[in-house]
Design a protein around this nucleic acid. Structure first.
Length: 464
RNA sequence: GGCGGCAUAGCCAAGUGGUAAGGCAGAGGACUGCAAAUCCUUUACCCCCAGUUCAAAUCUGGGUGCCGCCUCCA
């Protein structure tokens, strides 16, 4: 498995710290609002990475946090007239609603900053003890000048950063790039007691603390969007390595942005679509396929038109799966014949091709290409009348590969008895060569979202 | 000012030395009572210029265009 490591700017062979195990931490949402399509990308891509590593037999421990206390949380809570805690509870629930619909599996641990205040305080104290942090007023800051390797992830050095800094330099910090580990309480803000007075943690510290707590001082994978490289992940390194003296994460993975009209989808630009609003127009599985159709590090433009394209593509995949399941129902149990054997012999090649793509820095676009190749091969060979063994093998392969991507997970469900009766009525009409009646029933069912397809093996239905 | 990314068919998108995967859309054909689904056929001088090489979308240099990070941001 090769992964592009932001830290070294090269693709590297993945070697876990502990053989057979993968410990990964992914930065989760600040739960002050619904999350948008751009936010969804890392959730989806790293969910796929996790699934693939499990498929490869690794024991994966996946941690993704919820940031449930920060400036935005406080402001938003004020706007909504609720407590910060209530706000967090609400949007954590909403996160799960959308994430579930996107097929994103839950992490092994979803730690929250506010539930780790003691750990955070202890961590900050260690930084102070090591001379890497200092108290200024009621705040505690990280002393970036005291951490020699500061900037190694983002490829920046402190001087150049300062030249471009758009931050207020006339404050109490030693260095403009120093960042808050602990923020002293301001009037009306939630606060916790600490050795430095009442206050709350800064943003960056929670990830260092919780990653270390659940995964150890050195973790295998740390992931997130490219916009987190600086300053968030840079600061995490400074904090974690400052305390432990050991490498924090062995591999840093960063996904590219989702753009709208070629510009980054972001809350500040206001050009974002929430997952929730897209869900009203599209099945979110379409969004998932859309995300996986290009390499995770490349930027992708978002538009409804592109989703419509992916919707058609997804339908093609479902057609193949449904067709196999339909044919399997009446398939004969008998030894495979030569033609079937030809297909069966090819299946491992598709699996190998899929794995080759995934192992090349999670190239899901290529992997999906392999799946479409597989689908064509299956459609060519499984046309009706094949043995159950052959159909089952094809179906298992298709489901296995799409399952790794979290696709084709929906069951077809059942039909109402009324609809079944209509279908039977139409079948009789067709036998009677009463095409007018048959077609009118078909039209009527289509209005209800049921599409009928006449095949040599009988009528097949699907929902649209 | 510093750091970084991208440019492949109508649309989307893989491919990082040996003359271009896949999807969507379009056209033609097969199958079908008609459809649908499916299969077959069909559509690319890989942004420009120069260089390296037997050979470049792929490497090097120079352009052009677009975007991102350096402030919260996935």
């Amino acid at each position: 498995m090769k992964l592009y490591n932001t830290l070294t700017k090269t693709k590297e062979e993945f070697v876990p710290l502990h053989p057979g195990e993968v410990r990964m931490y992914s930065c989760g949402p600040t739960v002050y609002n619904y999350f948008h399509i751009g936010n969804a990308r890392p959730f989806i891509i790293f969910d796929v990475f996790r699934r693939y590593m499990e498929y490869k037999g690794y024991k994966v421990t996946f941690v993704q946090n919820f940031t449930d206390i920060d400036d935005k949380m406080i402001q938003r809570a004020k706007e909504e007239g609720v407590s910060v805690k209530e706000l967090a509870e609400k949007y954590i629930a909403e996160y799960y609603t959308d994430a579930d619909a996107l097929g994103i599996r839950r992490a092994d641990v979803h730690p929250r900053a506010t539930e780790h205040i003691e750990d955070i305080i202890h961590f900050i104290q260690q930084l102070i003890d090591k001379g890497l942090a200092y108290q200024a007023g009621n705040d505690v800051y990280y002393d970036t000048g005291a951490f020699e390797e500061y900037g190694k992830l983002s490829g920046q050095n402190l001087e150049d950063l300062e030249l471009g800094a758009r931050i207020d330099i006339s404050d109490i910090k030693k260095n403009p790039m120093d960042f808050a580990l602990w923020k002293g309480q301001k009037t009306g803000e939630p606060a916790w007691d600490s050795p430095w007075g009442p206050g709350r943690p800064g943003w960056h510290i929670e990830c260092s603390v919780m990653a270390t707590k659940y995964l150890g001082e050195t973790i295998d994978i740390h992931s997130g969007g490219q916009d987190l490289i600086f300053p968030h992940h840079e600061n995490e390194i400074a904090q974690s390595e400052g305390v432990s003296g050991k490498p924090f994460a062995r591999y840093w993975l960063h996904n590219g942005y989702i753009n709208v009209d070629n510009r980054k989808m972001s809350k500040s630009l206001g050009n974002f679509f929430t997952v929730r609003e897209i869900a009203q127009e599209f099945d979110l599985e379409v969004v998932r396929l859309f995300m996986l159709s290009s390499h995770y590090r490349n930027p992708i433009n978002f538009s409804r038109e592109l989703l419509e394209q992916e919707q058609s593509a997804l339908e093609r995949l479902y057609n193949a799966k449904n067709n196999l399941e339909y044919l399997l129902e009446d398939a004969p149990e008998r030894p495979v014949d030569d033609a079937e054997k030809q297909l069966l012999d090819q299946l491992p090649e598709f699996v190998a091709g899929f794995e080759r793509a995934m192992e090349d820095d999670i190239n899901t676009a290529d992997a999906i290409g392999v799946i479409f190749d597989l689908v064509r091969e299956i459609n060519t060979h499984i046309t009706g009348g094949q043995s159950a063994e052959a159909i089952r093998a094809a179906l298992d392969t298709l489901k296995s590969l799409t399952g790794i991507l979290g696709l084709l997970t929906k069951k077809r469900g059942k039909l109402d008895s009324e609809i079944e009766e209509l279908i039977e009525k139409r079948e009789q009409a067709r036998k009677d060569r009463n095409w007018t009646l048959a077609d009118s029933i078909r039209d009527e069912l289509k209005k209800q979202g049921i599409v009928l397809e006449d095949t040599p093996q009988g009528v097949r239905w699907k929902r649209i």
